[in-house]
Design a binder for these strands. Structure first.
Length: 306
RNA sequence: GCCGCGGUAGCUCAGGUAGUAGAGCACAGCUCUGAAAAAGCUGGGGUCGCCAGUGCAAGUCUGGCCCGCGGCA
């Protein structure tokens, strides 16, 4: 047996559930002299686990925490990439693990906070992704083929992977083929978890969540979210790129292109964010390790025990 | 009152020549091996406006009635 793994606390939950705010409150609490002494730590720092907040210039639409709201708590992995460039989960994983270790070296506790399940689990599970960068040129070529054609190609290259892959999901099929072309086969994924994780989930009823999403959306528009997208456009982002970001960026882009009206945009966006939150919940729901909490006190108690 | 057009899933609508109904959206559930706020999958739902007629068989043909929309008077 190796020495016990360092501790990592994760705050997760659907969008608009109040993760960022809770995280700051918890951090402030555990930064108090009393608790620092009690647990023999130097405090807490926050690492964002959000696949869109990593981009510079995407603030209102991603609900990125402001300097003021941070209340002096250091936040990592915000604004670490240009929206012009593709940022992927492997890059995130690397940076997040690096940040966590840096925090631990200061004898502080890292608090991973966010709602991007794929990103969160890449860190907690320590997935070892196939060591192969995306080949965008190849992808573009394969994109022209139909799903069934792609499936046939994959079946020839790697029958085993073909058995478990979704036969109509072109994006996944293309990635699998990409891997086969370079590595022969799609390797089975290995896990090397590096941290001892405490997973805390924020629980909200569907009705509650719907209201929170709606109110937050209107607030974002009032804060100038449309202007933010215009600025991104001005800085050289294509409509296609904005489309890729999804949700706010996708629908505002369509509105700015006059493909939909303002009221349509607001209505569709509201629905789309609700659907997104359901997808997040689907992902978390099957994870029995998550402790679902109702309030800050529950979280504090869990962390103290941990 | 007359003439047109329409009444099919919660919504918008497809359904030559009759053979017990489909699509998109919505809703519900799910997947996740370098785009993950991405990309996909599965499912529940309809006495086809009402009544009668013709046919072995009627959203589908015939007649009547009801409702909505447009036009004429």
């Amino acid at each position: 047996m190796s020495s016990p793994r360092p501790k990592l606390i994760i705050i997760l939950g659907p969008t608009a559930s109040g993760k960022s705010e809770l995280a700051v409150k918890l951090a402030l609490r555990f930064n108090s002299e009393q608790l620092k002494k009690k647990f023999g730590i130097n405090g807490v720092e926050i690492i964002s686990a959000d696949s869109r907040q990593v981009y510079k210039g995407m603030n209102i639409g991603t609900g990125k925490i402001t300097k003021k709201e941070m209340r002096g708590i250091p936040h990592h992995l915000l604004d670490v990439a240009s929206p012009k460039k593709k940022f992927t989960v492997v890059r995130y994983q690397k940076l997040a693990i690096k940040a966590a270790n840096k925090i631990l070296r200061k004898k502080k506790i890292p608090l991973l906070v966010g709602g991007s399940p794929f990103y969160i689990y890449s860190v907690t599970e320590g997935w070892l992704f196939p060591k192969l960068k995306p080949d965008w040129k190849l992808r573009k070529k394969l994109e022209k083929k139909s799903a069934s054609e792609l499936f046939k190609i994959l079946k020839k290259l790697d029958e085993k992977r073909a058995k478990t892959i979704e036969t109509k999901n072109k994006r996944r099929l293309i990635r699998a083929i990409e891997i086969c072309k370079k590595l022969g086969k799609v390797p089975q994924i290995k896990k090397t978890p590096q941290f001892d994780c405490l997973l805390i989930g924020i629980k909200k009823s569907p009705q509650e969540l719907k209201i929170l999403i709606n109110n937050r959306l209107l607030k974002r528009f009032n804060k100038g979210m449309v202007g933010e997208v215009k600025n991104l456009r001005k800085s050289g982002l294509s409509w296609k790129r904005l489309e890729e970001f999804g949700l706010e960026y996708r629908w505002i882009a369509r509105f700015l292109q006059k493909k939909i009206s303002y009221s349509e945009m607001v209505k569709i966006l509201q629905k789309d964010i609700e659907k997104f939150s359901k997808r997040q919940i689907t992902w978390f729901k099957s994870d029995k390790r998550i402790h679902w909490i109702k309030n800050q006190k529950d979280a504090e108690n869990l962390i103290k025990k941990f």
